[in-house]
Design a binder for these strands. Structure first.
Lengths: 215, 215
DNA sequence: AACGATAACTGATCAATGATCACTTATCGT
DNA sequence: ACGATAAGTGATCATTGATCAGTTATCGTT
């Protein structure tokens, strides 16, 4: 009936004043968005940060955000990926720092908890919520732990009567995760935590006593 | 200017066919809503359940929900409260079941994990997310644990060199929570967990070895 | 120096969600 | 029978993540 196919579109566009990127510099925006999102997530918590807030901090329209990341989840996923890459490097570096196997496990627990407190949002999204995507995040890390446990058992440093290396590794991981996730989910002063370093030390001591072979 | 103050309102209302409650039976609706919400939360996960879905299952309009619970969060809070009341009863009952102090701690770990797996949504919302409301949920339970630890230390059953009863209780709680929350957040087959009962047994064994005074 | 392909970006808009508002119906004690 | 009120409804709102059609600036080519 009507001849007009497309809408008239009498919108006014104002782009000149924005900090538009030069051609081919899209990757800088990618990084800028990550930085802005990371800051906001830390300040306000992931669920209180909207795509509009992120866009505003970057200095672009909300729509432009979706040019770079197809969803809010994708931004989160990328942040998680980056954070766990750092955790992986930390754990890998543990081998050089540690004096012996006992020392390695000692440093592992402390390092793990500190990582979680440094990246609470990323940690939370990787291990504290059920999501369909990226179930494999952090899995390589667990495999590394399982390998270490197996080696330590062969060395005779860790007990063998507790179960298979996998079983023990899962248990150990669960305990490290427990302290980390509780400190993240219910930080002081909402819960009367003792000093974090004391908690880490006690946790480590308890776990090592429970795991080590010799007395 | 215009004389008309209130809108004309030519809406059509159809209530006759719904399962309206008789006068003074509002409390039944309260319970019905809780049951419906609990089921849906278990089936689809809390964030995938909308107030409209809950209302539909109950058989009332979405609006009517807010007559009974002023927000979706209130429904959740009530479910959490109920679940933790049951956890409290379970822990209290432990005293009668347990043969001695060691046995009490043994049963406590297993009971705690099983509770979390029975009420994953409630547990998750109480301990695995940051929320402004109800930070005190589960706190009495922790106090009970701390009391038990203190008593066990005085009895000479638990080590004293690990730190104060509060420090040890927090550590022990963290470990129990760790296994529970990981099993909830990343259930099989998304993570290659060993058998749950084996995990609980190993966890218990490791923790008790780490905590008990005598060898 | 004009051009045109296209990267970069925008405003309007959508569907879904939790929540509110003005209004209607059924019930029960009097 | 009747009116107070518990119980419930449909329309509507603001906010959210996301989509779409259209605009502007940039840069290599000519």
């Amino acid at each position: 009936m009507a001849p007009a196919k497309t809408k008239p579109s009498a919108r006014t566009y104002t782009i000149s004043l924005t900090n538009r990127k030069p051609r081919g510099s899209g990757h800088e925006r990618l990084a800028e968005i990550l930085v802005a999102a990371k800051e906001l997530f830390l300040e306000q918590g992931v669920e209180n940060v909207t795509t509009r807030k992120i866009a505003e901090r970057v200095g672009i329209s909300q729509t432009a955000l979706f040019t770079y990341y197809s969803s809010k989840d994708k931004i989160l996923a990328r942040l998680i990926q980056d954070a766990f890459a750092e955790l992986g490097r930390m754990v890998a570096g543990l081998g050089a720092e540690a004096a012996d196997t006992r020392d390695w496990f000692r440093r592992c627990v402390a390092g793990y908890v500190r990582f979680g407190l440094k990246y609470p949002n990323e940690y939370r999204l990787a291990f504290m919520v059920m999501r369909p995507w990226q179930g494999a995040i952090g899995f390589p890390l667990f495999l590394e732990l399982e390998k270490r446990v197996a080696e330590a058992m062969e060395e005779g440093v860790l007990r063998r009567d507790l179960g298979s290396p996998r079983l023990v590794a899962q248990t150990l991981w669960a305990s490290m995760h427990g302290l980390t996730s509780l400190l993240i989910a219910r930080p002081r002063p909402r819960f009367p935590w003792e000093d974090v370093e004391d908690l880490v030390r006690t946790q480590t001591e308890m776990l090592l006593t429970g795991l080590l072979a010799e007395r």
